[in-house]
Simulated assay, not measured.
Amino acid sequence: MASPFAALAARLAISAEGALKRNLTLDRSVAIARSIWPQAKVSPVGSFANGTSLHGSDIDLVVDTQNLYSRTRAGLWAQQMEDELIKNRITKPTTTAVHANARVPIVTYIDSKYLIGVDISFTTNGLANTHYVRRELDERAYMRTMIILLKYWLKSRRYNKVYTGGLSSYGLALTIIGYFNVRKTVKARNCTVEDYQRWIEERDYQRLLIDYLTFWSSQWKLATTMLEPAEGAIYKKGTKGHCGKPRNSLLCIADPTDPTNDVTNGTYKIFKLREAMKVLRNRLETVQKDVELDALENIFKKTGTEWPEDDRSRQKFKGRAAKAKSKPTKKGGIRFKTAIDRDGLKRVRFSAD
């Protein structure tokens, strides 16, 4: 008998039609990027590339400019990319934005033809992350099902954005990969070796999810420990050069592709997230084997009407126009204007002399 959890994950993941639209959207974006930088490597990264996208998910694209990256250049490139996208009618001025002063400058827009959101950056960090996650999920496909279910749950509660204190898709994937790697060597009192192996072999997602939620909401010691997910190793904070100085009470997970990077450094809502995990765990405890998919989905989603896919994309850019906070200034041959948009994010519009 098929698992209702696996069936729900299949329902929540993008359909074949949705994947086709995203591939066509990528083709249009890649063509514009290569018209500007003919030698650049342009690659999809993130959830769409590793097979964990939900309905309505954006797609992420990286333009590798052959070791010419700098933050200032990336801001200019993002502006140049936006201009070409608008010029070629791939998007409209009202459905595009440049976040040039972000840690990783990006241009974000909605494709006018397919109504798919796209984020384009100019750094190769996402490539290594995507390759690592995809390799892990291809070897242990049951983790992909868990990621899709928990991504849907995080998104419904608005805990899926790092800039608002939530957990990124990459961070979520590492909590799941790390959980399974830790469980190979560290067993809980309510999880014997035999139980753990049986849950995996039988794809008992209910027990795996409950144990995962228990691990992160109750058993993990936030104040003193950090995790290396690739090794499944637990260390005291501040050791081995990871995650900088010890920090009190925040989640600390080292990036397998860059051990000096703390992937969950911005997850400052970890306390609320842990409490929400406990609630989800308790609700999953009550699920019966013959549960209907609609009832199971109601456990994972937040009560209330959700936006249709196209409307959600448009809503992201509704009222995006920003009001300038200062006059244009000039430094080092580059003109720029700082503004604050409705998300509270700074935007800097560059122009070169």
Results as ranks from 00 to 15, higher is better:
1 M>N: 07
2 A>W: 02
6 A>E: 14
8 L>M: 06
8 L>S: 09
13 A>T: 02
16 A>D: 14
16 A>T: 05
22 R>Q: 15
25 T>W: 01
25 T>R: 01
26 L>E: 10
28 R>W: 01
30 V>C: 03
32 I>Y: 04
34 R>I: 05
39 Q>H: 10
43 S>C: 03
45 V>W: 01
47 S>R: 03
48 F>N: 08
49 A>F: 00
55 H>I: 01
58 D>K: 01
59 I>W: 08
69 Y>M: 01
72 T>K: 13
77 W>R: 02
77 W>L: 14
83 D>A: 15
83 D>V: 01
86 I>G: 12
90 I>S: 00
91 T>F: 10
92 K>A: 12
102 A>Y: 06
103 R>E: 15
105 P>A: 07
109 Y>I: 00
113 K>M: 08
114 Y>L: 07
119 D>P: 04
120 I>W: 02
133 V>E: 00
133 V>M: 01
133 V>A: 00
135 R>K: 15
135 R>D: 15
136 E>A: 14
140 R>Q: 12
141 A>V: 03
141 A>E: 14
143 M>C: 11
145 T>F: 12
145 T>S: 11
147 I>Q: 09
148 I>S: 09
151 K>N: 06
154 L>R: 05
156 S>N: 04
159 Y>P: 00
165 G>C: 07
166 G>S: 07
169 S>I: 00
169 S>Y: 05
171 G>L: 06
171 G>H: 06
176 I>N: 07
177 I>H: 09
177 I>K: 06
179 Y>L: 02
180 F>G: 03
181 N>D: 11
186 V>T: 11
188 A>P: 02
191 C>S: 14
203 R>Q: 15
209 L>Y: 08
210 I>T: 09
218 S>G: 01
223 A>F: 03
225 T>C: 12
232 G>E: 06
238 G>H: 07
239 T>G: 12
240 K>C: 10
241 G>L: 04
242 H>M: 15
248 N>K: 08
253 I>V: 15
253 I>R: 07
257 T>D: 08
259 P>L: 10
265 N>Y: 14
268 Y>C: 03
269 K>R: 15
270 I>F: 14
275 E>Y: 09
276 A>L: 12
281 R>V: 02
287 V>R: 06
291 V>H: 11
296 L>F: 11
299 I>Y: 10
300 F>C: 05
301 K>A: 08
305 T>H: 08
310 D>A: 13
310 D>W: 03
317 F>G: 06
320 R>M: 14
323 K>G: 12
324 A>D: 10
325 K>P: 01
334 I>M: 07
334 I>T: 08
334 I>Q: 08
336 F>N: 02
338 T>E: 13
340 I>P: 01
342 R>W: 02
346 K>N: 14
348 V>C: 13
349 R>L: 13
350 F>G: 03
351 S>Q: 11
